[in-house]
């Protein structure tokens, strides 16, 4: 039957239901495990083939050689589009997508992350 207020029942019922929205910053959101979020780099696995750099659509990742078989990844999260292509391109599985999506930052510089092997001495040249 055509009538106005067709949604009345549904609407009244939802007063007694839990709201579908959440108070976001107070209540954290849960992302699926395989969500493509912030990248993670394992320097000890990297062999410096730079396939990730080649395939990255935005040039967000830069691999720098810091010493004999030592590599450092400079990831600019402000450029990264979280496509995860670098993870696919890496033969040694030195890159990984975490499900961390909370990247908001007031300072652009803080979005640039440098991954390097902490156990080894630093002699990294600043690029």
């Amino acid at each position: 039957m055509i009538r106005p207020g067709k949604m009345m029942q549904e609407v009244l019922r939802s007063i007694f239901k839990k709201p579908a929205t959440s108070k976001y910053p107070a209540e954290k959101l849960e992302m699926a495990d395989n969500y493509r979020g912030k990248l993670k780099f394992f320097p000890e696995k990297c062999v410096g083939c730079k396939m990730c750099m080649k395939d990255c659509p935005t040039g967000a990742i830069v691999i720098v050689k810091t010493g004999e078989k030592q590599f450092q990844a400079q990831i600019d999260n402000s450029k990264c589009i979280f496509c995860g292509q670098c993870v696919d391109s890496c033969f040694k599985k030195a890159l990984l997508c975490t499900s961390d999506v909370e990247l908001a930052q007031l300072d652009r510089e803080k979005l640039k992350v440098v991954f390097q092997d902490e156990s080894r001495p630093k002699d990294c040249p600043k690029q």
């Binding site: 395939d55 990255c56 659509p57 589009i81 496509c83 292509q85 391109s89």
Partner: peptide
Amino acid sequence: QNTYTQDLYLIER
């Protein structure tokens, strides 16, 4: 100006 792999993500957007 991009490779096919890179284009994939550009086209997606």
